[in-house]
Amino acid sequence: MSDKVRNLQELRNLRDELKGRLLLREKSKAPEKLVQIKVSMATCGIASGARETMSYLIEELDQQGVDAIVTQTGCMGYCYAEPTIEVTLPGEKPVVFGHVDTVKAAEIIEKYIKKGELVDGIIPDTYNTIDNK
C-alpha cells in the first residue's frame, strides 16, 4: 500500500504536514470566526450526558451559523464536573467549562462563543504538560 509510512523521515514530514493541517483547519475559510470545541467523551463523560451535549452543540452552532468544529476527546480528568468541554476561540487560549448540560451549552454559545464574555463554571487548568516541563 502506498499510504504506509516507510521511514522516520516520512513520519516527521507527515507529522509536520498534519500539524500544519490542524492549524490550517483553524485558519481555513474564515479564520477570525472558526471556533474549536472538544467534548470529553470517555465512559464517565458519556454517562453524565456528554453525547447529548455534543449533539446539541453541533446542531445549535450549525443552526445559528457559527463556524465551528466540534470533536470528541478522552477524559480530561475532571470527573466531578462532567460533562466537560474545551472551547478555543480564534486567537485565544483554550477554556474548559464544567457541568455542561444543554442549558449550560446554550449559555456558552450565547455569551462566550458569540460575545467573548466568560461565564461562571470555568475550570482553571490545574496541570503541567510534557511540553512545558
Binding site: K38, A42, G77, I130
Partner: peptide, 17 residues
C-alpha cells in the same frame, strides 16, 4: 500551584482518540 504533571495522560482530553 499546578501540582499535576501529565505524562501518561498527555493526550487524554487533548486529541481525538
Amino acid at each position: 500551584y499546578k501540582k499535576q504533571l501529565r505524562i501518561a495522560l498527555r493526550n487524554c482530553g487533548f486529541i481525538d482518540p
